[in-house]
Design a protein around this nucleic acid. Structure first.
Length: 245
DNA sequence: AACTCGGTCAACCGCAGGATA
DNA sequence: CTATCCTGCGGTTGACCGAGT
């Protein structure tokens, strides 16, 4: 299930993702967020297109992503939602915050489609699961609230969730790596919250008229701050700035 | 042991639509 | 109003894997 690596006419890499690329992408998004998918790979040091990065993050690297192991209840909900919505995978996936639309789509095509072809008790499923959908949605809403309060738990990936073409030791080290990143972020957050950060009034330095991307200690290119007005960012020439390094 | 074939799933592609200049 | 950019969606493909022969 691993596509062979190749390069397009622009020299951008295609095919399966390596552990190194995953680390770069996860590190960058954890630190700076996905401020612009198209520009992101350039600053994260990845020879990938933005689309590929986005897909990799959403389907595999984002915190709390759940893969495989569908419960009977989940299956029934998917079946019912599909009966109502059709191939609206993103809408169906909205009922499962921990699963991606791509994964649900795959699960449908590989498993559930056959079930709908063989089963004739669709009406029973609908009546039984309509109640369950509400129940699961309530649970998800509750889980989301908890997630907001326990963000540091989200970043932990299970070894089974890492790319299958990696050795287990590599997968384990990648988990450690993600945890390290988060611990670092947590430490920074604690430093901020314990200091005078929140008590000091926020002041905009009006003298600053040029904010260049910088290279941080990880070797990642730090984009201009998201707090800088958009009209300023839009006039910023990233390519020109990169020539300075 | 070698081969075939269907199942599985990660990743790519093209398109639509919203946002912005 | 139009053009361009960017994101997200759904369909499809390609390659691995395991069961069957």
């Amino acid at each position: 299930m691993v596509r062979t690596t190749c390069y397009d006419e622009n020299g951008r890499k295609k095919g399966s993702w390596t552990l190194e690329e995953d680390k770069k992408l996860a590190a960058y998004i954890t630190k700076y967020g996905s401020w612009n998918w198209r520009q992101l790979p350039k600053y994260a040091g990845l020879a990938r297109c933005g689309k590929s990065c986005r897909l990799r993050w959403i389907n595999h690297l984002r915190p709390n992503v759940k893969r495989g192991n569908y419960t009977e209840e989940e299956d029934e909900i998917i079946l019912n939602l599909h009966a109502q919505l059709g191939n609206k995978w993103s809408m169906i996936a909205a009922h499962f915050p921990e699963r991606s639309d791509n994964e649900i789509k795959n699960h449908w095509h590989t498993t559930l489609k056959k079930r709908t072809a063989t089963t004739n008790n669709k009406n029973n499923i609908e009546s039984n699961t309509r109640r369950k959908i509400t129940s699961v949605e309530n649970q998800n809403a509750s889980a989301n609230n908890n997630n907001n309060n326990n963000m540091h738990e989200n970043i932990v990936l299970e070894s089974s969730e890492w790319s299958p073409n990696e050795s287990s030791s590599e997968a384990l080290s990648s988990i450690d790596y993600q945890q390290d990143i988060f611990q670092e972020e947590l430490a920074n957050l604690e430093e901020i919250t314990s200091g005078s950060f929140w008590t000091q009034p926020f002041e905009v330095d009006t003298k600053i008229d040029f904010v260049a991307p910088s290279i941080d200690y990880c070797g990642l290119v730090c984009p201009p701050s998201p707090f800088i007005p958009h009209e300023f960012l839009s006039s910023f020439d990233f390519d020109d700035c990169n020539n300075y390094w």
